[in-house]
Amino acid sequence: MTWLVGLCLLPAAGWGVFLFGTPALIVLAVSIAAAILAELASTLPFGRFTLRDGSAFLTGFIVGLLMPAGAPACVPAAASAFAILVVKQSFGGLGRNWMNPAMGGVVFALLSWPGPMSQWIAPKGGAVQGAVMPPLEALRAAMAGPGAKETTPLAILSSSGFTFSDLDSQVLGWINTHVFSPMGISLPPGTFDVLIGHVAGGIGIVSVPLLMLGAWFLLFRGIIRWHLPVMYLGTFAILAAVFGGLGSGNGWFAGGPGFHLFSGSLVLGAFFVAPDPVTSPMTNKGKCIFGIGLGTLTFFLRFFGSLGDGVAASIVLGNCAAPLLDRWTSRRVTGTQGGAA
């Protein structure tokens, strides 16, 4: 089953490698290798061979996907090793850990190496001038800064001198003139870049459409249930829409949730990492509450926090509370009366 999840992530990973070239490939390879080596080191001496269940590969793969392409090799390696050795195997291996190993590793990396974790690489054919930064980081920087603010995030970005790729301006120019101009609206610059994922950022979390492709397959095959992702993204979108603008002084209802929803880490977290059956609540009711909790946490940590883009930290915090949630939601009547038929 975990191999299937890995398969669903391939399109997004492929796009990341195409966009950022060999550095991305090295980061992915190193994190997967480190995860597998750590798994072997911690299970072979005890006579267990557990690589077949694919969880070590998936952990390494997800850790690699969340890393920036420019990260030095030791960062993904240490993150994957920490994820497998401390977060998973110390508790007895697959199914017994309470924190998601991949996210544990990423948080460990964010805490230990804030610098290397934000060494972004400009995408192929992307905007060259100006500091290479994913749109989200640029937005947070712009919002923190003083000065008047436009309403939508894209407007804030372009006003703060964040340049989009010329491919984006050509495509938008063509679309605006032919399709939208009769209707009198024109897409703000950067829409194409953000939508397709032609921007800097983590290897796997750049392109949302490809992630959604994998996510749809997971839902279709029933590997994950809809409760958690829907509640998670829904809560986040509502909160971002209503309170999003407060941080930047735009008043209420000015958060521009669309922009945030198209940051890949949120989609990766909601569909691939949070519904990990081992570390999320078991019952459907539990998953809904868990989703709402994650939504609020991600909102606060993204708009006000300082640990990456909030998804990794909120999932790890959610994992701390998941066993508590399991206890409360499982308070149902146990069994109807009467013994065997």
Binding site: V86, F108, L246, F304, N319
Partner: peptide, 20 residues
């Protein structure tokens, strides 16, 4: 591990939430 998770709530976060 929980301590690492709780480090998301740091002083800067508090300042921004209350200051905002």
């Amino acid at each position: 591990l929980m301590a690492y998770a709780f480090m998301a709530f740091d002083r800067a976060f508090l300042a921004r939430v209350l200051g905002g």
